[in-house]
Amino acid sequence: MNCHCQLSDAGHCVEKVPIFNSLSGEELEEIAAITTAKSYDKGEMIYLAGDPGDKLFVIHSGQAKIARLSPTGREQVIRILEPGQFMGELSLFNSVPRADYAEAVKASTLCMIEGDKLKELMAAYPSIAFKIMEELSRRLHRAEQLIENINLHSVEQRLAQVLLHMSEGKREVLLNMSKGDFASQLGMSQETLSRKLSSFQEEQLIKLIGHRKIIILDPERLAEFMADPSSN
C-alpha cells in the first residue's frame, strides 16, 4: 500500500541516505514531499528489466538485490542493498528502460522518489548531484574491479580476496546474503563456491559455521593464497 512519506515515519529514509545528509530539515521536508513508500514481501520483484526508469528507490528497511540475467538464464547479482542505500540512479541521467531487475531479499519497505522532481531538486541543491556522482564513481570502480578479478584471477584468488576484504581485519565474516547470491557476485556457481569454501576449511584457512558465518583462521596464509594459490 502506497503512503506519503513524512519525516516522522517512513520518510526517515531520506535522512538515512548519504546523498541527503548535508541538507537542512526544511530541505529534507522538500524531499519527503515528493517521496512515497511501498512495502514488498520477501521474493517480490521491485522492478523488472525493461521497466521505465523514472524513480529513485531508497531502502528504508529490509534488503534488496539488483541482478541481471544472461541470455542463457544465468543470474548475475550486481549488488545487495541495505537500509539507507539507493538504486535506480542511472535512470536520472538517461531515459532508457532498466537493464537489470530488483528483488526484495527480505520483507522490505522502500521509499520512491520521482525522478523528474528529484532532478529539479538536484539543480536547486548541487550537493545532491555531486553526492550522486560520487556514489556512481564508487560503483563504477567496484564494477571495474569485479571485471578485472574475473578476467585475471583464479576462483581461489577471488574468494580469498573477498573474504579478507569482508573481514575488515577481523576474524569473522557474516554473509548478508545467500550463498547463491554471494557466488553470483563473485562470478562463479554456487557449487564451485561450496567446493572452494570446503577446500579452504580442509586447509585450515577458514572455519564454516552454519550457512552465513565464516571464521578466518589464518589470514596470513589466506593472503599468500590470494597472491599465489599454487604455493599452498
Rank of each mutant, 00 (worst) to 15 (best):
Y40T: 04
K42G: 14
K42Y: 04
G43F: 05
E44C: 07
I46T: 04
I46P: 01
Y47A: 12
Y47P: 04
L48D: 15
L48Q: 14
A49V: 04
D51H: 03
P52W: 00
G53T: 05
G53H: 04
K55W: 03
L56H: 02
F57Y: 10
I59G: 00
S61M: 03
Q63M: 13
Q63F: 11
A64Y: 01
K65N: 04
I66L: 08
I66C: 01
I66W: 01
I66Y: 00
S70F: 09
P71Y: 06
P71V: 13
T72H: 07
G73P: 03
R74D: 14
R74W: 10
I78K: 13
R79C: 01
R79T: 06
I80E: 09
L81N: 06
P83V: 02
F86A: 02
M87W: 07
M87P: 03
G88A: 07
S91Q: 05
F93E: 05
N94D: 09
N94C: 10
N94G: 14
S95W: 00
V96P: 09
P97K: 02
R98W: 00
R98I: 01
A99I: 09
A102M: 09
A102R: 04
V105F: 02
V105H: 05
V105Q: 08
K106E: 15
S108M: 02
L110N: 08
C111S: 08
C111W: 00
G115V: 01
G115D: 03
D116K: 13
K117F: 01
K117R: 14
K117S: 14
L118F: 05
K119S: 06
K119P: 13
E120K: 12
M122P: 12
M122H: 07
A123C: 12
A123V: 15
Y125N: 04
Y125H: 11
Y125M: 13
S127D: 12
I128S: 01
M133G: 15
M133V: 13
R138N: 12
R139N: 05
R139G: 01
L140T: 07
L140P: 02
H141R: 15
H141M: 11
R142I: 08
R142T: 13
E144L: 11
E144N: 15
L146G: 11
L146F: 08
I147V: 11
N151D: 09
L152V: 11
H153S: 14
H153L: 09
S154D: 12
E156P: 15
Q157L: 05
Q157I: 07
L159V: 10
L159F: 02
A160F: 00
Q161L: 03
